[in-house]
């Protein structure tokens, strides 16, 4: 399995997800079982590509920016589906599908250079848990961001419970990803934390979500401020994920994607 076959799997998954999103929007009930099944089937198609790709590469597909986009698309739809099943926000599947479509199209239209090499520092038992946990956190925060935007546009607090829960789960995963990275860095380079550009942006992102959680815990913060924090957190997260590659400081970073 190579990137050549990816468009077929991606097309099948996107079609199923779009079908699921349309089902959810057109359903008379709050929750459409058909939408959930269509989305889940699309996820299975996407997961099948990841598994076969992993087997053919003989290493986890987590090294390049394109490979992390693959996981992000998968986890974003998974988080969207779980949120839809729990809170029945019927438009969320459409939003998740559109965002996933953007990242999937990036992989199809602008493929990164993929090879089978895995540099020695990445050959660690921390590699898979660190990256997958982080990408899952990114996806969950992506869902929280979509809800925050919706709440902002519609001037409602209806989505706040879902945002709170997603941010709480995302924060648990974001912290776990950051800490597993620190433990790995100690094994690889001798220091838990190096203030590398990526680590610095990760710390900024983590602190922004921490402020959001603390404001919610204390019952402080106006709606606009809370939503602004989520938007800022999401933007910081994008910087941390791939934005740092374009900064001058990236020349010295140990985290640049190839």
């Amino acid at each position: 399995m190579t990137w050549t076959e990816f468009p077929w799997f991606a097309a099948a998954a996107i079609l199923l997800w779009t079908g699921g999103a349309v089902c959810a929007l057109r359903s008379r009930k709050d929750f459409s079982t058909g939408a959930a099944w269509l989305t889940a089937t699309g996820l299975c198609a996407f997961a099948a590509f990841i598994i076969l790709f992993w087997m053919s590469l003989q290493r986890p597909p987590l090294r390049t920016l394109g490979e992390t986009r693959l996981w992000y698309s998968f986890f974003l739809m998974l988080a969207g589906l779980l949120t839809y099943c729990r809170w029945h926000h019927r438009w969320l599947l459409l939003f998740s599908t559109v965002l996933t479509l953007v990242f999937t199209l990036m992989n199809i239209l602008k493929p990164e250079i993929h090879d089978q090499s895995l540099m020695p520092a990445l050959q660690s038992y921390w590699f898979v848990p660190h990256v997958t946990v982080y990408i899952f956190a990114y996806s969950v925060m992506g869902c929280a961001f979509l809800l925050a935007i919706a709440g902002w546009v519609k001037h409602t607090e209806r989505y706040r419970p879902a945002i709170d829960r997603l941010t709480c789960i995302g924060m648990a995963f974001l912290t776990a990803g950051m800490l597993s990275g620190a433990l790995w860095a100690k094994d690889a380079w001798g220091h838990f934390w190096n203030w590398d550009p990526k680590e610095t942006w990760a710390a900024a992102t983590w602190c922004l979500y921490l402020i959001y959680l603390h404001l919610r815990l204390c019952g402080k913060g106006r709606r606009a401020m809370l939503n602004a924090l989520l938007v800022a957190g999401f933007l910081c997260l994008q910087m941390c994920w791939y934005g740092v590659n374009y900064l001058p400081a990236a020349q010295e970073s140990m985290h640049v994607y190839y």
Binding site: P197, A204, I211, L247, P248, E252
Partner: peptide, 13 residues
């Protein structure tokens, strides 16, 4: 956050 952003944008933090 502000300090991290300053460090993150600096070339040699």
């Amino acid at each position: 956050v502000l300090s991290c952003l300053t460090l993150g944008l600096a070339s040699s933090p």
